[in-house]
């Protein structure tokens, strides 16, 4: 099988660190756009954070949003162009800290968009600070003694939270730590876009990801750390799927 670059990715070289999983997720999103044949009607919204340059990497029309506001920007696009497929690509700080209100309310409104949520439990771009999804005792540059639940509270479980909202059509947490999980992640992303095309409401795929650079681990060790530490706190699985509920 010849490995070809998906058409929905430009030929711009990605700037991500060695071992970072953003590249994998970009590719999965692009493959899904190709397979669904929707590149010409897709508008993507990039976040602030490591994936801020996503607008250079995706071949569809792209908008760069203020920090945390991608869901609101996507709302504006979708309401102006309902015929477009609209997705946001956001990290954990963007989506679950500064942009929590915008995230919750696209769920509440059942905004017919797709969110690709990269959860690597740390702020990558600014150099390894605590994220809203940093787990207990995890060392970051702003939790140098480990995240104290007394001081900093608990990590935010986004899929669980959004699943409680009636407007959320689909919420699944996946991982890209191994081939099997990467395949499952792609399936989830495809399902999310498909549900948007069917007009079901908000679809979100949370992707457990690594940040070898700021975790201070080699890429392989980072994958293992994800499995050992993130997965128990953020269990993989489908948290909401209205298409299943409908077929029951």
């Amino acid at each position: 099988m010849a490995i070809k670059r998906p058409h929905a990715l430009t030929d711009v070289e990605l700037h991500y660190c060695p071992g970072c999983t953003h590249g994998i997720v970009h590719r999965l999103v692009a493959e899904v756009i190709d397979e669904l044949g929707i590149e010409g009607k897709t508008v993507g919204v990039a976040p602030v954070g490591c994936s801020v340059f996503a607008y250079n990497y995706f071949n569809c029309d792209m908008i760069e949003a203020p920090h945390g506001r991608a869901p609101a920007v996507a709302t504006g696009v979708k309401r102006a162009r309902p015929e477009c497929a609209v997705f946001t690509y956001q990290g954990d700080g963007d989506l679950a800290a500064i942009g929590t209100a915008e995230t919750v309310h696209v769920g509440a409104r059942g905004e017919n968009i797709t969110i690709i949520f990269i959860n690597n439990a740390i702020y990558g771009m600014t150099g390894g600070q605590m994220a809203p999804t940093t787990i207990a005792n995890q060392v970051t540059t702003t939790t140098p003694y480990g995240r104290s639940l007394q001081v900093n509270g608990n990590p935010v479980k986004v899929c669980e939270m959004l699943a409680t909202l009636d407007g959320t059509a689909y919420a699944e947490r996946v991982s890209v730590d191994c081939v099997k999980n990467v395949m499952a992640a792609k399936k989830a992303i495809k399902k999310a876009f498909t549900m948007q095309l069917e007009g079901k409401g908000l679809s979100i795929v949370e992707v457990l990801s690594t940040c070898p650079t700021n975790w201070g681990l080699a890429p392989n060790a980072a994958m293992q750390w994800l499995r050992d530490n993130l997965m128990p706190v953020f269990p993989l699985g489908v948290y909401k799927d209205v298409s299943k509920e409908e077929s029951k």
């Binding site: 908008i63 203020p66 506001r69 696009v77 309401r79 102006a80 209100a101």
Partner: peptide, 21 residues
């Protein structure tokens, strides 16, 4: 559309303006 905040509202404006309306 009534937004959840002024911040969300102006960013919805950003999205809709980007989409050319």
């Amino acid at each position: 559309l009534q937004a959840e905040s002024e911040i969300a509202a102006i960013n919805m404006v950003l999205g809709a303006a980007s989409a050319g309306v």
